[in-house]
Simulated scan of single mutants.
Amino acid sequence: MMRNKLSKLFNAIGLFKHPSTSQSHGFASNVRNERSSMVTPEPCEQKAITPTAEQTYEEWLIDHPSALNSFEELMNTAKGKKIVMFLDYDGTLSPIVNDPELAFMSDAMRVALREVAGIFPTAIISGRSRDKVHGFVKLDEVYYAGSHGMDIMAPPRKHKAGDYNNYQPPVAVEKDNSVIFQPAQEFLPEIEKIYDELEKATKELKGVTVEHNRFCISVHYRRAEEKVHSDVKKVVKEVLKKHARFHATTGKMVWEVRPSIKWNKGNALEYLLDTLGLAESSDVLPIYIGDDRTDEDAFEVLQKRGQGFPILVSQNPKETKASHSLRDPSEVLTFLLRLAKWRKNSGL
């Protein structure tokens, strides 16, 4: 009975031809006979299976694991080390928004950042002007480096390595006496000219805004129609033809025009470590969190030093020198809160 039912099932789904013999030699023998009389399937086209975005991201995480999922492992490494925090602003402490003037940081992020800065030396290194970033963050407990590190507010005195154990965050009075380091001062007059030229050249390009960041110029086109994007590139290239000492780099829907000097976010990180008296320390552990292509310079510095954790903020897989990752600013917030809690609970 069972054999007949199976045979009917096989016939119904088109696997076998009807058996040609009526005599049975038992179930196994009958299956062998039926198997030998299988219909040869027609060849079918092989279709490539394209991995989903989530699958691709999960594969990327193998090499750049989540800093949240790896938190305990990271903190085991951090025990007994001198942690110094470095963070980008846009896309890290605040979400990327269409209007760069509205890139506000949440109150929750500000509270978390203040808490971390009260425990560890903390600096924000941004492509924005230093004053503008300070206006967004509104904290005196952190150091600021604007214009991709070309405008740095450093401690008023160079610290010694031993000062770390008695670290006190900067306060408003100390800020007034702080050292301002600006390696691109000589370029300021030409930067003003470039800003005026870009303003004039993009005036008719709807959705394009030019932002003056003191030592660099940002041309934003996130709000522009796609057909305008190539026009923006053309304008930037044409303006730069008249200014040989400058170059342009691309970011997230933005062109950045900067002086062509050997100075970037990685140099800013090293400069701040030096002023904190930790540049030569064997037990310093810098943590740099950023989302932009310009943050790769800082990631590379940490990679070469063999110290610290470069952490990329991204929801998409990309080439990076970062060792770990976080998806978005909400995960950055969680990481900062956990870091502050870990430090308090460790009793160090």
Score class of each variant (00 low, 15 high):
N4E: 12
N4F: 08
L6T: 01
S7Q: 02
A12G: 09
A12W: 07
I13Q: 07
K17C: 14
H18E: 09
T21R: 07
Q23R: 06
G26Y: 01
N30H: 05
R32A: 14
N33T: 10
E34A: 15
S37Q: 09
V39E: 08
P41V: 14
P41T: 14
E42F: 05
E45V: 01
Q46I: 03
L68H: 15
F71G: 13
F71M: 12
E73Q: 10
L74H: 02
G80Q: 07
K81W: 03
K82E: 10
V84L: 08
M85I: 14
L87Y: 10
D90E: 13
V97H: 10
N98Q: 10
P100G: 10
L102C: 11
A108V: 15
A112C: 06
T122R: 00
A123Y: 02
A123G: 09
A123D: 07
S126P: 06
R130A: 14
V133H: 02
V142T: 12
Y143G: 04
S147F: 03
H148S: 04
D151Y: 04
K158W: 14
Y164F: 11
V171H: 06
E174I: 02
E174N: 02
N177F: 11
S178D: 06
Q185T: 14
E186V: 13
P189T: 04
E192P: 11
E192N: 13
I194C: 13
Y195D: 11
D196C: 10
K200Y: 07
L205Q: 12
K206M: 13
G207P: 01
E211V: 04
N213L: 06
C216M: 11
Y221M: 03
V228N: 07
S230Y: 04
S230Q: 07
K234Q: 13
V236A: 08
V239Y: 15
K241Y: 12
H243M: 14
A244F: 13
T249Q: 08
K252L: 01
P259R: 06
G266Q: 05
N267V: 05
L269Q: 00
L269E: 03
Y271V: 09
Y271F: 14
L272I: 10
T275G: 01
T275Q: 00
L276Y: 00
L278C: 01
A279G: 03
E280V: 08
L285K: 00
P286T: 01
I289D: 08
G290E: 10
D291H: 12
D292H: 05
E296R: 00
E296Q: 04
A298M: 07
Q307P: 12
F309Q: 00
L312A: 15
K318V: 06
A322T: 03
S325R: 10
T334V: 11
F335N: 03
L337G: 00
N345C: 03
